[in-house]
Simulated assay, not measured.
Amino acid sequence: MGIEFPSGQRRSSVNEQSVPLLHSFPVWHKYNRGGRRLMHGLYTTDEFTRGGVNEMCSKSTHNRQRIVEAAEMLIYHQGYNQTSFSDIAQSAGLPRGNFYYYFKSKDEILLAVIAHRQELLQQQLEAWSRESIGPRDCLHRFVHMMQDEHGELLRYGCPIGSLTQELSKTQTGLRTQARALFELMQHWLSQQMTQLEVPDPLGTAMHLLGRCQGVTLIGCVYADQGFLEKEIEQLDEWIDCL
């Protein structure tokens, strides 16, 4: 007589037998003579659920995040079209062959990079809203973001602006995805302008956003920190007059 297994299957032998685990993890279950399910003879099902699966999921998430962060840095520093799978693999410290488990194409990696940036930007804007003493203070914090990141900005420009500009020329289908980052900033800035009761909240928000992008671009072209600081001072004065 065989042993009745949880899945309803029967085996003709009561010796340990390997039964494929019905999910994506490359693991095998074993059954001992008492019908107790083991994990390589080491874990019970509950122990595997708490430990093995969670550990594998954690490692998978970690590796995916390494790829996204490596790609984000490379795309910012050298551009999307100049960044290859090999560049990302080397920077992430992962074999290139492993990439296809997480991403099927470079475009998929870019979409993950955009989503990651959007998440971080959302968190930053929400933090400013919580910590600031009012909408005018929020606007000052937004402008001074250029000063806080002046080293990277003067060398590589705005990470959002440079990416969107590049995609507008070569990957128009992805441009809309990247534009969502600008729309997030636009919406938040418009909220601050509305609270300040300016006549045209959206138009004023767009003016500030465009001014910051222009300042960043010229600052990068000339690698001029003095210019950047002077423009930030003028923007501070403009905000105080709103």
Rank of each mutant, 00 (worst) to 15 (best):
I239T: 01
Q90M: 12
G151W: 07
C158M: 03
I239H: 00
L21F: 05
R36D: 14
P20Q: 09
C57R: 15
L121F: 02
I88R: 05
I3E: 04
R11S: 15
Y76V: 11
H150A: 12
D148F: 05
L121N: 05
G97W: 06
M206H: 11
G219Y: 00
G173I: 04
G35A: 13
I67A: 01
L208C: 00
S132Y: 02
E197F: 13
G93P: 10
Q78H: 05
Q124V: 11
G51V: 12
S129D: 15
T83L: 09
Q186E: 09
G157L: 08
E183N: 10
F103L: 03
T204E: 10
S86G: 07
T204L: 06
D200V: 07
S18Q: 08
W238D: 08
Q9H: 13
M146I: 08
H62C: 07
W238P: 03
M145S: 09
M39K: 07
L163M: 09
V53S: 03
E237I: 14
N32E: 09
I88V: 13
Q192H: 00
Y80F: 10
Q165G: 03
M73I: 11
E72K: 14
T170F: 03
R155D: 10
Q171G: 01
G219T: 01
G34P: 07
V27M: 11
M193K: 02
G41H: 03
A180M: 12
H144E: 15
K106Q: 06
E55I: 02
L94K: 13
R175T: 12
K30A: 08
G226F: 13
I218H: 12
E16W: 08
S105W: 02
V198D: 06
L163S: 01
C220K: 06
G203Q: 10
Q195I: 06
V27T: 10
Q147I: 14
Q225E: 15
E149V: 02
D148M: 08
M1K: 15
H77C: 09
F85K: 10
Y102C: 05
Q122W: 11
E55C: 01
S7R: 11
H116K: 08
E72R: 14
E229R: 03
I239M: 00
A223H: 10
M39Q: 12
Q195V: 07
I218E: 13
A223D: 14
P135V: 04
S18R: 11
L121T: 03
E166L: 00
C212F: 00
E231K: 06
T164R: 05
G79T: 05
L74V: 08
Q165M: 06
Y222L: 14
Q171K: 08
P20K: 11
L196V: 10
D224E: 06
